[in-house]
């Protein structure tokens, strides 16, 4: 399992989700803390491309052997791509949570929402 890390360039949601903003699209995933709390991920059921996600609402679930965890959307928009590779290798969410373990790409409906997210310093402070 990867060492604890929280990349500087990402924005964070207090429910332990991250967003990588590129113009009016964003990639979402769960943070190192989230995957460590959950344990080894054994199942990720991706949402449908075209589905709408709403900031602060659950849009998917990740499951370990013993637990189910909701994944919260940091921002609002429409899903334009899902990480299909996770169907066969959900453990990538553990081994590379900010890289190959990304979950979905979203076309943002309101880029102003980005200002509501935490920067890395604020997120680390939340983790204590």
């Amino acid at each position: 399992m990867a060492e604890a890390s929280y990349p500087e360039e990402l924005k964070y949601h207090p429910e332990h989700d991250w967003a990588r903003i590129e113009g009016d699209t964003a990639t979402f995933g769960i943070t190192w803390y989230a995957q460590d709390s959950l344990g080894e991920v054994v199942f990720f059921d991706p949402p449908e491309v075209g589905a709408t996600v709403t900031a602060n609402e659950s849009y998917a679930e990740v499951e370990s052997v013993k637990a189910v965890s909701d994944v919260f959307s940091p921002l609002s928009g429409e899903i334009v791509e899902v990480n299909e590779a996770l169907s066969d290798d959900p453990e990538k969410i553990n081994s590379d949570p900010y890289g190959e373990g990304w979950l979905v790409k979203v076309k943002l409906s309101d880029t102003a929402e980005v200002d509501t997210l935490l920067d890395v310093a604020a997120y680390k402070e939340l983790l204590g």
Partner: peptide, 10 residues
């Protein structure tokens, strides 16, 4: 509940 991970231990 676990040491290294449930799957590996199993």
């Amino acid at each position: 509940v676990q040491y290294e991970g449930i799957k590996d231990e199993h």
